[in-house]
């Protein structure tokens, strides 16, 4: 299948370094796996009580290759009215990870990290050290590869394309593969011969 139009003007290898003029979070913090745990512990102590999301991103040609993206929201941890909730502060933590490096888990800080980290592990292959139950969550347990990586093909892994065994009595029809010109010619000749033979016989019988 031909790729669709892929004309590009300027492709940015590290989009997170480019900041558009927007204000979706109050602060963006960039860390490394070694410091990540300290940063998130400090943020939790500052009142970021909800781990809104943990996600991943793969920047194929960048070093470090992956980002683990944490979104935190500072919500009151008690019964609170709208005025008390106010406009909660949000922070995004980007943790750059290279292939084969594991990230410490934050499951003990926020229990909601459990499934989210499993999903990042499943779809990107980033391991979380200290996670109590690091299994695949979306893909089957025996799946090979991590589908959301950029070098993983969209239509799934290349499968073994051994042709199906032919149906009995139809050896001339290859499965999936169209017959070669010679095979098609031979088939057509055989069919014609049989037809003419039948015609001949029927005309003989009639006469």
């Amino acid at each position: 299948m031909q790729p669709r139009s892929t004309k590009t003007t300027s492709t940015v290898v590290d989009p997170t370094a480019v900041r558009p003029p927007i204000d979706d979070v109050d602060e963006i913090i960039r860390t490394t796996p070694a410091e990540m745990r300290d940063v998130l512990t400090r943020l939790k102590a500052q009142g970021f009580s909800q781990l809104t999301d943990v996600g991943g991103a793969d920047y194929l040609r960048r070093s470090p290759r992956f980002d683990v993206v944490y979104h935190l929201t500072a919500l009151p941890t008690r019964v609170a009215s709208i005025a008390e909730v106010g406009k909660p502060k949000r922070v995004r933590v980007l943790c750059g990870v290279d292939e084969g490096v594991s990230v410490p888990t934050v499951y003990d800080l926020w229990p909601s990290a459990n499934w989210a980290e499993r999903e990042v592990f499943d779809l990107f292959g980033i391991a979380f050290s200290g996670h109590p139950d690091l299994r695949r969550i979306e893909m089957p347990d025996d799946w090979e590869g991590h589908p959301l990586r950029k070098d993983y093909p969209v239509r799934g892994p290349a499968r073994d394309r051994t042709p199906r065994p032919p149906f009995p009595g139809k050896e001339n029809v290859g499965s999936r593969i169209p017959p070669t010109r010679e095979a098609a010619e031979r088939l057509r000749r055989e069919i014609n011969e049989r037809l003419h033979h039948d015609d001949h016989q029927t005309s003989e019988e009639k006469s």
């Binding site: 492709t11 989009p15 480019v18 558009p20 927007i22 809104t52 999301d53 993206v69 979104h71």
Partner: peptide, 25 residues
């Protein structure tokens, strides 16, 4: 334009948000 952003709205089940990264394509 290249960059990353988080956009969220209040859905029927809660905060539905998208963390979107564009590399200018």
């Amino acid at each position: 334009p290249a960059g990353d952003v988080y956009g969220a709205v209040e859905g029927p089940r809660g905060e539905i948000g998208y963390y979107i990264v564009s590399n200018g394509e």
